[in-house]
Design a protein around this nucleic acid. Structure first.
Lengths: 134, 134
DNA sequence: ATAAAAATTCACGTAAAGGGGAGAATCTAT
DNA sequence: ATAGATTCTCCCCTTTACGTGAATTTTTAT
């Protein structure tokens, strides 16, 4: 067998927070919501995280940037945790992403329409102004 | 002189709510927030709205669908209302509209970029999935 | 050993956009 | 005139994603 695996370097919540540019409160909140959990606890009870967990948190952040809610991440997390195979999570993720692409498309169409409305309104106002000045 | 202008047909809050597919609570909330106000009140104090107000509310709904906040609508709403009162405000209104057009343009650019991110991410996920399935 | 920094668990607060109910008054129709 | 439907004003509740202490422990550095 290979020699015992080297102890992973565990880092504290504060270090993780600085690395990911989030607050410790946010990390505890994610744990509270069940989208992530601390890898270990120290003797005294302090949270300690492995690099793997940090990668998972980066992933969470990415999903957040893509507009997924914590609730949607919980679904993904369940699939993730249960199967332990990332691959099993992917179809569900793709499904959620698809729905987000649709939402974004809708918003863009609406924005285009609003822009047109505002521009039209602006033109009417300018004409009215010039006319009143004769 | 022309004959006295026909009394505008005023409708109740419930009718407006049904027409616009929102709740009466929502309409009162908008009033509370200052983005709209009732055209009149009946003898007994019930809100009554003119067709013009209904058009303004449709406009509000459109803005809402775009993700504009009530705060943003307050600016636009104020300008919209002021312009009706006096044409001296038109240059100011055009100015505000221009700033909103810029905001809309920015939002559209952000959404376009977000959409690209999501689509790219989706592709990477699918490739990974297919690869793992060999 | 001891001060300072960091972490712990409550637990209340915030903003946005309303939801929902109470109790009273008003409007509509017969 | 009276039932029944609507509306009125208050006022507290909800959700989401944390913020912000407070009081207590743990960890780190000297």
């Amino acid at each position: 067998m290979a020699p015992e695996q080297e102890a992973e370097q565990l880092i504290t919540i504060g270090e993780v927070a600085r690395m990911l540019d989030v607050t410790t409160r946010t990390l505890r909140y994610w744990e509270e919501m069940g989208v992530i959990e601390a890898s270990h606890r120290s003797e005294g009870g302090n949270r300690l995280y492995t690099p793997y967990m940090v990668r998972r948190m980066r992933f969470i952040i990415k999903l957040k940037e893509l507009g997924l809610t914590i609730k949607e991440m919980q679904d993904l997390g369940a699939a993730y945790g249960d199967a332990k195979k990332t691959e099993n999570m992917i179809p569900r993720l793709v499904e959620i992403l698809d729905s987000h692409i649709n939402k974004v498309d809708e918003k863009m169409a609406n924005l285009a329409s609003l822009r047109k409305d505002i521009v039209d309104y602006r033109h009417r106002m300018i004409e009215k102004f010039n006319f009143s000045k004769k």
